[in-house]
Design a protein around this nucleic acid. Sequence first.
DNA 1: TGCAATCCGGACCTTGATGGTCCGAATTGC
DNA 2: GCAATTCGGACCATCAAGGTCCGGATTGCA
Lengths: 152, 152
Amino acid sequence: MLRLSKLTDYAVVVLTRLDDATDGGVLTAPGLAGATGLAEPTVAKVLKILAHAGLVEGRRGALGGYRLTRPLADMPLIDVITAMDGPIALTACVDNSFGVCESESTCPVRGRWDPVNEAIRRALSGISIADLAGPPAVVPHPEPASPVFVAG
Amino acid sequence: MLRLSKLTDYAVVVLTRLDDATDGGVLTAPGLAGATGLAEPTVAKVLKILAHAGLVEGRRGALGGYRLTRPLADMPLIDVITAMDGPIALTACVDNSFGVCESESTCPVRGRWDPVNEAIRRALSGISIADLAGPPAVVPHPEPASPVFVAG
DNA sequence: TGCAATCCGGACCTTGATGGTCCGAATTGC
DNA sequence: GCAATTCGGACCATCAAGGTCCGGATTGCA
């Protein structure tokens, strides 16, 4: 399905929420859970991963919480995806691990996925989280009569 | 991981192999399995899906087999991915299914993934299977000194 | 100094999709 | 009529993702 994990989706939601109160203030995991409507342990898990990647900063103790390390406009989407889902690699045989593919000797596309990965990586680098949050996103109900579906 | 399924990878391999003998001749599933080194039922499954998508054409009976419906240069990669993995949609809440997201009312990125999907779709549309097969792919061993264990 | 709030790091389990296999039915050429 | 082959579906095993939970460490406050 060429889908990225739900955690990545949650991460974007959490980051945008975190941006709303980044004026020096921090937000706690339960607070973010309440603001986003997501389960508290899930939000905590997302925040931990994001903190590990350096996208957010956690402060322990009472009055602790999380805050952004940089504005969302300076945070390309690919950073979040890489943090949550790992590096962009459509196929396993594209990295430097040799010898793991049993049909290596007969594989005609060996190493040929690189430009594809590069194309996607480039497409994703030009989009920031701020672009996703965009203008105070109040998407008007997109006309339920029209069959809008994003087929490839 | 933003990965596509192995079946898609197999499909590209099978298609390129099929291109080698598309001069009017057809290739059987067992024949392709032998040529690619993949398991026979797996190849058959891939071919069935590709045939259903119209990318290859199957002919039954004795002397039957599969053949390409068009040259690989006219077959964009996105067609194969769509056939094998379904339509490109990074997140579930991007399609027309409304009301399935429990945090729909509070989600700040609602409908914001569309440009991302579009960017990826555009990046993938510009690459054909022929580009992946590329020049008679004999990738020069990039690591001659590394422990090369050819598993197969 | 003790207590409460909060993050941190990991283990754990469930669920769903994926990968892979197999079988019977239909079709075609000899 | 027979053999070869695709077609269509069902079936099962495996694995990663999604989600939950717990103990420990850190910080601020009374």
